[in-house]
Nucleic acid binder design. Structure first.
Lengths: 204, 204
DNA sequence: CTCTGTGAACATCTTCACAGCT
DNA sequence: AGCTGTGAAGATGTTCACAGAG
């Protein structure tokens, strides 16, 4: 996760024309400690030069290769509701190499709608599209009760990594990489911290 | 975070009419180990009975109180774009006690649009609404370049916890609780794992 | 016999502090 | 002097394994 944050920060620096950067600067810009930054980067090789710092462009390139962002990732999105459409139209994905090659929905209502350059396709065509584009990444934005079935179909069709926005904990085979993004869960960590802030637990 | 996951799982069990539940069941349903579940719960008190398990209803209540979900949380949302509107209309927030009391946008275009029962309000009224409802939670769904300013205004007006969906690392005073939800960052951890899966690092 | 609660062992993550390069 | 890379120390998080309650 931190590598991805560094990567984005480096891109910012590149745009601003910085030539080199120190671990302290990266630390301040990303909210971690300088030692942490150095440890993280050193784990993958010696990218810096002592006494000077890191070359912004070189380091940015290294990070992108490490994160797998030096290639295009065909991605499918299932669930064309409000959230699905927001994600399908989000330019941030494209600029980082994530190409949405298909948006799917069971509900025939949004099918046929155009999201940017994409049609919403019926679920029947899911497997076909995944295989045609070799999509390894799937994004799930369907309601909780449909999430497990969608996850299984994605995996069976060849998807190996899933970003799950539904409020349901997916149960998928070992080896499939799943990240669960659940908004209410995040809000609940906020309220937890608000409640325990002034009380006995100073840890939080 | 895990507490929030347990809490939701417990609610599912309650709906299905289960009377008691063991740490093993919770573990299977939430993707953690049984020992972890017990440690987590025991940290806040002795909620179970040995040889039997946990009373579903009692434990669910305890978790909600621990997470601060036994009260209503007035919440403001800034940024009425695609994502903002998806979140404003998300019923999942309401059922867990998060009441969105105001949706705001600089762009006069969506101002006046109705999101469910809510009007989109101009930014000028931000402070007024926060203070009127005593909102302590803010959700940011504005572009990166506006995020920092919005964050500062929220904090100045009394907000103490922020859920940030913009691709920008907020820099706010100590004591303000910030959770950063960045979709591309999550996707990048997926690609990182995809790339390093078959290679030298067996850790991932 | 089942299942919780928990100290002790283990593993992982983070910070410190300094050697070594520029 | 300035800054990286890194072993050692410290902190935190997780699992084990078993005592004890029902």
């Amino acid at each position: 996760m931190r590598l991805a944050v560094y990567s984005r920060f480096l891109e910012q620096l590149q745009e601003q024309g910085h030539g080199t950067v120190s671990s302290c600067m990266i630390a301040r810009g990303t909210g971690v400690t300088p030692a942490q930054v150095r440890k993280d980067l050193a784990y993958f090789g010696e990218f810096g030069t002592r006494g000077v710092g890191y070359d912004v462009e070189a380091l940015s390139g290294h990070l992108k290769r490490i994160l797998g962002l030096d290639r295009k990732w065909p991605t499918v999105l299932v669930g064309a509701g409000k959230l699905g459409s927001a994600l399908a139209l989000y330019e941030g994905f494209l600029t980082r190499g994530f190409h949405i090659v298909g948006v799917f929905d069971i509900d025939p209502d949004p099918v046929g709608n155009r999201f940017g350059q994409l049609d919403v396709l019926p679920m029947e065509r899911l497997e076909e599209v995944i295989q045609r584009y070799g999509a390894q990444i799937g994004i799930i934005t369907v309601p909780a009760n449909a999430a497990q079935e969608v996850g299984e179909r994605l995996v069976d069709a060849g998807v190996r990594a899933i970003l799950n926005f539904s409020p349901y904990v997916l149960n998928l085979p070992e080896g499939i990489i799943v990240r669960h993004v659940d908004f209410t869960l995040h809000l609940e960590t906020l309220t937890f911290n608000l409640v325990y802030k002034k009380e006995e637990f100073k840890t939080f």
